[in-house]
Nucleic acid binder design. Structure first.
Lengths: 197, 197
DNA sequence: ACTCATATATAACATGTGTTATTTTACATT
DNA sequence: AATGTAAAATAACACATGTTATATATGAGT
């Protein structure tokens, strides 16, 4: 064998992640990664065939972080947890979040489509959402995913009012969830009344 | 004087706009613009001191287009019109919209802060929004701006369900506006009842 | 101690970019 | 028609980047 490995695949991804966090995904270059590690570019090319492959690996890491945040957010109310976890991710890794929405659109789309059915199932177990049809739940979920993305983008781009705190964001997310669910319930009640008469 | 001007400032901006529409704002280069016009880079530097100045001019054009779309959307309900105009812009110029939200965050922030008071004033005239306090209106407007941004980002990145049409987008925007306003009214009524008792 | 596989370093190449210096061209003024 | 001004073309420079070819260093197995 040869000499000891001084720069592992993980270290490289971590260095790339740090750069992406401050300068955006486009800010990543082979030389910057090398500089951050105190190496040359050679170890990077041993671990990754090209900068594109490296970016793929980076996105996998980001996805895994977001999944971990979701695990940590378990308050017993799965529907709300997803929104809060996504929001937390957007706030803590704002630069990467922005780029992720843009660059890896295809990846996120697939990811979304995969977890949608599981989400609907979780929602069906939720006492707060008792009595809704699956179509109702789909509409509610879509509305909340839209709102959550908008809120995250605003947070990531500092579009929100200056004095807006993290708690304010959680509050407005929760409040809008209330609005959507409450309105859906009222519409449901109206429909029941109509079908009863 | 010298020879006739063959490439005007406007033509340059238009060429840059076309490139931005297909390749994003980062896809703009001096040479690409020149190629698209069938010229060299020289005329560009006559009109713009640097690529940054050119980008500023491009953003001005984008803003003016978005303003024009807002003019066209006049249905007599100003609160709804803004959302629909923004949505239409996001759909028709999706690539540029995405980049605009990211790149010119500061510009948009200023723009937003400028029109906010005018928007609140318009909302106060809206019969649908009778009886709300200014704080209520601010919350409603913020919620709708968040939802509108989320919906626009989803549209621009094709995150929405495949079969989703433009009309579906307008509908869900309108429906969520209903939700938010209806909930705010109910909260208001509860408060009035409480203060009456 | 020697050898050799291999991790790392160094340096170069190719390409794309903004920018500028220089040259060429067109046309209004004289 | 001659001339000078300004527009446009050309070409070069400086720099950053991905990638690769070559050189060096290190440590395990003999």
């Amino acid at each position: 064998m040869g000499p000891k490995v001084k720069f592992t695949r993980e270290q490289i991804i971590d260095a790339a992640f740090e750069i992406a966090q401050t300068e955006g995904i486009d800010g990543i270059t082979m030389r910057k990664i090398a500089e951050k590690m105190g190496s040359s570019v050679a170890p990077i090319y041993v671990n990754f065939k090209s900068v594109d492959k490296l970016n793929e690996a980076l996105i996998e890491k980001v996805i895994s972080i977001s999944r971990q945040l979701l695990m940590e957010e378990n308050t017993g109310n799965p529907f709300r947890d997803i929104g809060n976890a996504s929001l937390r991710f957007a706030m803590e890794y704002s630069v990467i979040f922005r780029d992720l929405v843009l660059k890896s659109g295809k990846y996120m789309r697939d990811y979304d489509e995969k977890i949608m059915p599981a989400l609907i199932e979780e929602m069906q177990k939720d006492p707060e959402l008792k009595g809704f049809t699956v179509d109702d739940l789909k509409t509610i979920l879509l509305k909340m995913r839209i709102f959550q993305l908008g809120l995250s983008m605003m947070a990531a781009n500092s579009f929100l009012p200056k004095e807006y705190s993290k708690q304010d964001m959680r509050d407005i997310l929760s409040s809008t969830a209330d609005d959507v669910i409450m309105s859906a319930k009222r519409k449901g009640f109206y429909n029941e009344e109509k079908s009863d008469s």
